[in-house]
């Protein structure tokens, strides 16, 4: 709310002094009243569940969500005493970092190529963006069958090409399954990231490069000293948004391994799901939700700050 009010006025105001001050206050309050219904609705839809969540976290909760008694920090203590929580937390960090960085490293060259003028560019862009239109769960289900050790298409292909000579069980052991899941998550994150970066690239005016070329900046130099700095705000936003999406991304891991084998691919969100809906420990689950919410809130604030800085420049 305070950000909305401290935002600079949309139109420059003419005149000086008292009149301007009153006029400005009027404008501000008008803006405030105009956004008030929206704010209230948002507070109701977003704020209320969070309040209930906090309330729940401090109670003993029955399997079916009935609050039994206030129990202070007992749920928190339960979570912190659970070795599975720490394992899932560590894995969540690895998962988020690997997927976000991997996505960026792959998306940047793809975006650069798609930004060049070449025959069939439109088609190439379409191909890159197409996977975006498929539901994540469906993608994961297809991969699950494709990665099946004995009858999966993926092994079949590798065998036919002579790359491997015995089928590999991609999802049978936790470390390999986790790497496969990271790779799939990177693949499905590319369309969005490429789109974002393409937007950034198209905002860089051509004459900047021409000026650079006059000074002898071509190829790598031009990329390093012109493209990358000008693209930086978009890269930052891509990182922050991807962190938010990936951190609590559920379908890929759940569909492929359900956090198994032996809980070796559990991240916080799958651990949370098991707590809440398999074990019926809703109190503990709301604590984990709260922690995840806090992390995501930090990244959301960072995103909002980045966005505002971009609007101001």
């Amino acid at each position: 709310m305070s950000t909305a009010l401290s935002h600079p006025p949309l139109l420059p105001l003419a005149g000086e002094g008292k009149v301007r001050g009153i006029f400005r206050m009027f404008r501000m309050s008008r803006a405030f009243w105009l956004i008030l219904p929206g704010l209230l609705l948002t507070a109701l839809v977003i704020g209320l569940p969070i309040l209930i969540l906090i309330w729940t976290a401090f109670h003993e909760v029955s399997r079916f969500g009935v609050l039994l008694s206030f129990n202070g920090f007992a749920n928190f203590a339960d979570v912190f005493a659970d070795p599975l929580f720490y394992a899932a937390l560590l894995r969540t960090i690895v998962w988020t970092a690997a997927v976000v960085l991997g996505t960026l490293l792959l998306s940047l060259p793809v975006a650069l190529i798609l930004n060049e003028d070449f025959a069939g560019r439109g088609f190439a862009r379409l191909l890159i963006l197409l996977p975006w239109s498929v539901s994540l769960t469906m993608t994961a289900v297809v991969w699950r069958w494709a990665l099946n050790g004995q009858s999966g298409l993926f092994n079949h292909l590798l065998l036919q090409l002579g790359i491997i000579d015995t089928p590999i069980e991609w999802l049978g052991t936790a470390p390999l399954a986790f790497m496969v899941q990271i790779a799939i998550a990177i693949l499905v994150s590319i369309p969005f990231t490429v789109t974002l970066l393409l937007g950034g690239l198209s905002s860089i005016a051509g004459d900047v490069y021409e000026a650079g070329a006059v000074d002898g900046a071509t190829g790598w130099k031009s990329f390093r000293h012109i493209t990358l700095p000008l693209l930086k705000p978009f890269v930052n936003i891509a990182i922050v948004l991807n962190v938010i999406y990936i951190f609590n991304s559920f379908p890929i891991i759940w569909v492929l391994t359900q956090g198994g084998p032996a809980d070796g691919t559990d991240i916080l969100v799958t651990y949370l799901y098991k707590l809440a809906f398999k074990f019926g420990q809703l109190g503990k689950a709301s604590v984990v939700s709260l922690m995840m919410f806090a992390v995501l809130l930090v990244f959301t604030v960072v995103y909002a700050a980045l966005q505002m800085r971009r609007e101001e420049t």
Partner: peptide, 21 residues
């Protein structure tokens, strides 16, 4: 057994049987 049983759920295990494997 089939290699790495930990990647075989119920459906996958029974699929192996239906395939005669």
């Amino acid at each position: 057994t089939q290699p790495t049983p930990t990647s075989y759920g119920e459906a996958e295990t029974f699929a192996l049987f239906k395939q005669g494997k």
